[in-house]
Design a protein around this nucleic acid. Sequence first.
DNA 1: CAATGATCCTGTCCGC
DNA 2: TGCGGACAGGATCATT
Length: 267
Amino acid sequence: MPELPEVQTVLDGFTEAIKDKYILDLECYYPGTVIHDPEQQDEPFPAKMISTRRRGKYMIVELDNGSSFIIHLRMTGKLVFSTLATEPLPHERARFILEGDELVHFIDIRTFGKIIHCTSTNVSSYLPNLGLEPLEQEFSYATLAAKLKSKKAPIKTVLLDQSIIAGLGNIYVCEILYRTGILPTTPAESLNPKSIKNIVKECVTVLNQAIQMGGTSISDFRRIDDKTGEFQRFLQVYQKAECPLGHKTKRIVQGGRSSFYCPICQK
DNA sequence: CAATGATCCTGTCCGC
DNA sequence: TGCGGACAGGATCATT
């Protein structure tokens, strides 16, 4: 499931694929996958990308005609580059058609992913309330502590809340909590300053490492060139029977999602 | 206002 | 062999 490092990996690949090329069309094969802003003009193509950026798990692609794409992969969305296919691929929900018979396919088994095409001035109105960007300057002990203050919910649930920190998902939250030795059930407001500082530090370390590895290929995540990421080799508790020290891990359900942790290493 | 639950989907895996 | 059910899970909306 794509989280911040996977989204960044996909966005880097997508940026490279469309750079300096005309986008000729965006076709949709599944109702609801592509959403058109009512204020968006009817004939936006051809157009070229002038910038791409990421906000949490959202990718934002700005075009030179005043419009933008907002892409969210949700759980099973993928962007796949090709130069050959013409018929829709299995689970292909949309495709970008580029000059020179090049294509970028939006493949999404569970159909939760979205591509919003809107005027660039309307981008922010399509984004939800998103919290701290963990790889930006704003992410620090002070800003995170302020967000955790008076949050009674378990730290696991709070770190998954995109309005607190934008970009973390189940895998990285489990890994960060293991590496900081914090039990996922700990009420967020009860964490001491040292623990919060550790979360900031490990969060940045783990996310940067994962980006460097091209993301985590659990289940079916792939880069745009269909290569796997490699961070799964560095996972310490997520879907593991034992932690690196050989202790048996536990699995509990919090907010409907599995938390993996080590009852000995995490307190 | 916060916390919880249902919902959207389909491929995979497990038990019988 | 095949069927039913649980599970995976990000974000949104409804309910408590």
